[in-house]
Design a protein around this nucleic acid. Structure first.
Length: 574
RNA sequence: GCGCCCGUAGUUCAGUGGAUAGAACGUCAGCCUCCGGAGCUGAAGGUCGCGCGUUCGAAUCGCGCCGGGCGUACCA
C-alpha cells in the first residue's frame, strides 16, 4: 500500500541523514504516521514525524523536516512521488504523481470485485456473536441494528483477510423461557375455552395468540391433559421453535444469515455448565459463601465476585445442588467457543449489558487467555420517529414496531444503510418518513443513483458502439482534469477504508465513503463529458471517451464492492 | 454513591494529539439545445457543555464540575 511505500522512503531518508551525520538519532522511530490532509493543498499524504522527532531531540522540527526532504529528493521514486514540501511548523507533505493515480485505475479493473480485499487478517479465525435474543418474541429494532452491524463487520473482516464465523446464541433457557411458557400456556388454555389466570408479568401481544393458535392447529388440545408444569415446558419449547423460525425469516429479509445457531439449553443438557464450574473449582477460582458458589472475578479486574450457583428457591439446597446462573452458562458457552479454536471473539451486546463485560473477560482470563481475546462491542438502541415525532414502544403491552414491519414498510437497503450510518455508541434516531423518501434527502438513493447513472452511460456508450476498453487499449494520460483526478483519489482510498473499518470495527465509515465517491462522481459528471467528446487536435475525442468510460467503470466497481460489503444492492436501473 | 457511554452548525452526526473543526438534511440564491435534474454550483450558519492543567500544538489527553442516557441481581 501507498502508506507503506512512503514510510519506507522516510525511514531511508532518516538513515541517510544519520549516516551523513546530519541528524544524531539513537533509534529510528518505529512508526511513521501518515495521514490524508483534509486540505488538498497539503498534498496527498502528510506526516508530522519531524514534529515528534523535534520534541524528542530538542531540535527545531522545521530543520529536521528540511533535512528529511533534501534526502528524500535524492531517493524518491520519480514516477510515484511528484514533490515533497516542508511547511511550518514542520509538516512534510507528499504530492503523488497523476501517473500513480492512474495506475490505481488499472489495478481496480484487474481485481474487479476483489479490489479492496487484503491479507491483513492472515486467515486468523475470528468468531462474531450477535443478536443472541431470547426466543420469546419478535426481533426488535435494536436487534436489527446489531444484526446489520455484525453482518457488515463480518463481511468487512472477511475482505480484510480474516476467517469469520457468525453465530447466534439462543438464550432458550431460564426464567424468561419459563415466563414465555406460562404465557403461551395461558393463551392456549384460553383459546380452548378454559378460564385462566394470565401471568402478571407475562408476554403479551398478538404473536402469543398466533403461536398458541398454531399449536392448537397442529397438536389440538392434547396439552390440556398435561400437568401444568409439563404443559408450560412443552409449550415453551414448541413456541420457542416457532419464534426462532420467525427470527431466521426476518433476519434473512434483512440479508443476514448466521453460520451457526447455538442453543443455551444444550450446554445444560450436555453437562458443559457443570463441567465448567468444576474446572473453575479445580483451578481454585471459586469459593462458597452464603450457600452459593462464587467465581473470583474480582481477581481479574471485575468490580466484585459473581455467583455461579445460587441457592434453590426454598433456600434448603446445598451449593452443589443449587441452580446455575445465567453467567455460569455464559462462561461455559465462551469456554466452548475458545475450545473451538477461535483466536478472537467479538460479541455485540446491547449497551445495557455493559456492566457484564468485565466479568466475562475475567472468565476468559481464568481459562488462561488474554483479556482482549474477548472483545465486546456495545450497541446502542434505535429510537423510531415518524413525522419527527417519537414512536412509543412498549414490549410489555406488545405495542411495538417490529423489525419485520419496518422492513416491509421501508425496504432492506435503506434499513441497512440507516442502521449502519451512525457509530455504534450513539443511540440511533430512525426517521421512517426519511428512509422511505426516494429523493435527495435519502443518502441510499443518492449512492445507488450514481451507480445506476454510470450503468446507464455505459449502456448509452454501447449503443454508440463504444465498449469499456481493456487495460492495454486505454490511454489514461488523457485523464488530466481536476475532477477526474479528484475522483481517482477518492477511489484510491477504498482499500484503506476497508482496512480501517475492519481493524477499528467501524463499518459505518463505509456509508460516508460511498457518499463521498458518489459526490465526486456527480461532480465529475457535470464537468466532464464522458461520451461524444470532440477533440480538435486529433479530430476525434474517441480516445478521451474511452478513457473516461474506463474511469467510470472503475467508479462502478468501487461502488458495487462497497455496497456489497454493506449488504446493499447496486442497481443497474432505478 | 459508584461504573460505562454521550454533550460539536437550526437538526442528525463525523472528527479522538496536528494545519483555516467537516458532512448530510433544513434555509436562502443560482444551473438542463447535450451521456439519467433521484443531479450540480454558491451562500449563510460554531464560546466544540463549563473551568483548570499537560503539550510546539487540545474538540481530542488528565483533573474537577454541569447536563442527558444506561447499568449497578443468588433475572436472562
Amino acid at each position: 500500500m501507498v502508506k507503506e511505500r512512503l514510510k519506507k522512503l522516510v525511514l531511508e531518508a532518516l538513515q541517510m541523514a544519520q549516516s551523513h551525520g546530519q541528524l544524531n538519532i539513537q533509534r529510528l522511530p518505529e512508526q511513521i504516521i501518515f495521514e490524508r490532509p483534509k486540505d488538498k493543498t497539503h498534498g496527498d499524504f502528510s506526516t508530522a514525524s519531524a514534529l515528534i522527532l523535534g520534541s524528542q531531540l530538542k531540535i527545531s522540527p522545521l530543520s529536521i523536516a528540511k533535512i528529511i526532504k533534501d534526502d528524500l529528493d535524492t531517493i524518491k521514486e520519480k514516477n510515484f512521488v511528484a514533490r515533497v514540501e516542508v511547511v511550518p511548523p514542520g509538516f512534510i507533505n507528499f504530492f503523488l504523481t497523476p501517473n500513480w493515480l492512474r495506475e490505481t485505475l488499472k489495478e481496480i479493473e484487474q481485481k474487479k470485485s476483489k479490489f479492496g480485499c487484503s491479507e491483513l487478517g492472515q486467515g486468523l479465525k475470528v468468531q462474531l456473536e450477535f443478536v443472541s435474543a431470547n426466543p420469546v418474541g419478535p426481533v426488535h429494532l435494536g436487534h436489527g441494528r446489531w444484526a446489520v452491524l455484525g453482518d457488515t463487520l463480518a463481511r468487512v473482516l472477511m475482505a480484510a483477510g480474516f476467517k469469520v464465523e457468525k453465530e447466534f446464541y439462543v438464550n432458550d433457557y431460564g426464567s424468561q423461557m419459563d415466563l414465555f411458557g406460562q404465557s403461551v400456556s395461558a393463551k392456549y388454555c384460553e383459546l380452548l375455552g378454559q378460564s385462566v389466570v394470565y401471568p402478571e408479568a407475562g408476554y403479551r401481544g398478538q404473536y402469543i395468540t398466533d403461536i398458541a393458535q398454531s399449536i392448537i392447529n397442529e397438536h389440538g388440545d392434547k396439552y390440556l391433559s398435561f400437568s401444568l408444569e409439563e404443559r408450560e415446558k412443552g409449550l415453551s419449547t414448541l413456541g420457542a421453535k416457532q419464534v426462532l423460525e420467525e427470527m431466521k425469516k426476518v433476519l434473512s429479509k434483512l440479508g443476514v444469515q448466521f453460520d451457526s445457531w447455538f442453543s443455551e439449553t444444550t450446554l445444560h443438557d450436555s453437562g458443559a455448565v457443570r463441567q465448567t464450574i468444576d474446572a473453575l473449582k479445580a483451578a481454585d477460582f471459586t469459593y462458597e459463601k452464603e450457600k452459593a458458589v462464587w467465581f473470583k472475578s474480582k481477581a481479574f479486574g471485575d468490580d466484585k465476585d459473581r455467583v455461579l450457583v445460587r441457592q434453590g428457591g426454598d433456600g434448603k439446597k446445598t451449593p452443589s445442588e443449587g441452580l446455575s446462573t445465567y453467567f455460569a452458562a455464559d462462561i461455559a458457552y465462551h469456554r466452548d467457543k475458545l475450545n473451538r479454536g477461535f483466536k478472537g471473539l467479538i460479541n455485540i451486546w446491547g449497551a445495557d449489558h455493559h456492566g457484564y463485560v468485565k466479568r466475562m473477560q475475567a472468565a476468559i482470563q481464568a481459562f488462561g487467555y488474554p483479556k482482549d481475546t474477548l472483545e465486546v462491542i456495545l450497541g446502542q438502541l434505535v429510537n423510531l420517529f415518524r413525522d419527527r415525532k417519537p414512536v412509543r414502544m412498549s414490549k410489555r403491552t406488545g405495542e411495538m414496531v417490529t423489525l419485520e414491519e419496518l422492513l416491509d414498510e421501508v425496504g432492506k437497503d435503506p434499513v441497512r444503510f440507516f442502521f449502519l450510518m451512525r457509530s455504534t455508541d450513539t443511540p440511533l434516531d430512525f426517521d421512517i418518513d426519511l428512509a422511505k423518501k426516494r429523493s435527495e434527502e435519502n443518502p441510499v438513493y443518492y449512492v445507488q443513483y450514481a451507480h445506476a447513472r454510470i450503468s446507464s452511460i455505459i449502456r448509452f456508450a454501447q449503443e454508440k458502439g463504444l465498449k469499456v476498453p481493456g487495460l492495454d487499449e486505454v490511454d489514461l494520460e488523457l485523464l488530466n482534469e481536476e475532477p477526474e483526478l479528484d475522483l481517482i483519489r477518492k477511489l484510491a482510498q477504498f482499500e484503506e477504508v476497508v482496512e480501517t473499518a475492519a481493524l477499528k470495527r467501524t463499518p459505518y465509515i463505509l456509508t460516508q465513503y460511498v457518499r463521498d465517491v458518489a459526490t465526486a462522481f456527480h461532480f465529475f459528471y457535470h464537468r466532464c463529458r464522458v461520451i461524444g467528446n470532440k477533440d480538435s487536435a486529433t479530430g476525434s475525442g474517441k480516445n478521451l471517451d474511452l478513457a473516461r468510460l474506463f474511469l467510470i467503470d472503475c467508479v462502478k466497481i468501487i461502488l458495487k464492492n462497497a455496497l456489497e460489503l454493506m449488504g446493499i444492492s447496486a442497481p443497474e436501473k432505478m
